[in-house]
């Protein structure tokens, strides 16, 4: 086929409107969020002492961090869907949630006596955290990866990982309202492990299905 012939075929197709990546990713996040939200309401539900919990700084920080994670991953996701954007261009955004978490851990080390550190980090429901967050993430991650197939990421694995961070942040935000373990030490260990699992799953899946 001659290149001019190909161009003719492309020109004939130009009138079809294309939806932007932002719309697709938004759609996937809302859809995934609804499914995860229903699953959460059905199986877990918000903790009963929510009224007093929202008055504690630790609980608010835990929820805010998850939402922050979502917001940064959302922005990075939209950037990485473009072919000319490299991971370095979004690295500063991705670094925000870990930096906040590190600051909170330092604060907790100063606020709590060393004898309580171990107990706070281990918490009470670590295994629920480790299973609930990845399970809640499955549908959002799948929806996001499908949405991102319309993009053209320079590195499919990186884009998949960031989609995993967005899905994991979403699930963490939901789970945070159920989980009675509020210490930043608990969040640093178990939430990080749980969301990390989703990030790795996203990277592995992205490497396969986000090629273009």
């Amino acid at each position: 086929m001659k290149t001019d012939d190909l161009i003719e075929a492309l020109v004939q197709d130009v009138a079809r409107p294309q939806r932007s990546t932002a719309e697709r990713v938004l759609g996937a996040t809302v859809l995934g969020g609804l499914v995860a939200g229903l699953l959460f309401a059905w199986k877990l539900g918000i903790r009963p002492d929510i009224a007093s919990a929202v008055e504690t700084g630790r609980f608010v920080f835990k929820c805010a961090l998850s939402v922050m994670c979502m917001a940064c991953a959302w922005w990075a996701c939209l950037q990485l869907a473009r072919p000319e954007v490299r991971w370095k261009n979004v690295a500063a955004w991705i670094a925000v949630p870990p930096a906040l978490l590190a600051a909170a851990v330092l604060y907790e080390f100063m606020a709590m006596p060393p004898v309580r550190w171990y107990e706070l980090a281990v918490g009470r429901y670590a295994s629920t955290c480790l299973s609930a967050i990845p399970l809640l993430s499955i549908v959002p991650l799948a929806a996001l990866l499908i949405a991102l197939r319309a993009g053209a990421p320079r590195s499919p694995a990186t884009a998949g990982a960031v989609a995993g961070l967005l899905a994991g942040g979403l699930s963490a935000a939901l789970y945070a309202t159920h989980c009675p373990d509020d210490s930043p030490l608990f969040v640093a260990v178990w939430y990080t492990l749980a969301v990390g699992t989703v990030v790795i799953a996203g990277a592995l899946a992205g490497r396969r299905i986000l090629r273009w």
């Binding site: 290149t3 492309l10 197709d13 294309q18 869907a81 072919p83 319309a150 993009g151 053209a152 273009w212």
Partner: peptide
């Protein structure tokens, strides 16, 4: 030809007002 085809199918990933050539080159 592969590049033209990919450009066509992914044309929504170019943001208006950004320079076009870096995107094409990528």
């Amino acid at each position: 030809q592969e590049t033209l085809l990919a450009m066509h199918l992914k044309r929504h990933t170019w943001i208006e007002d950004r320079p076009l050539l870096p995107w094409v080159r990528a």
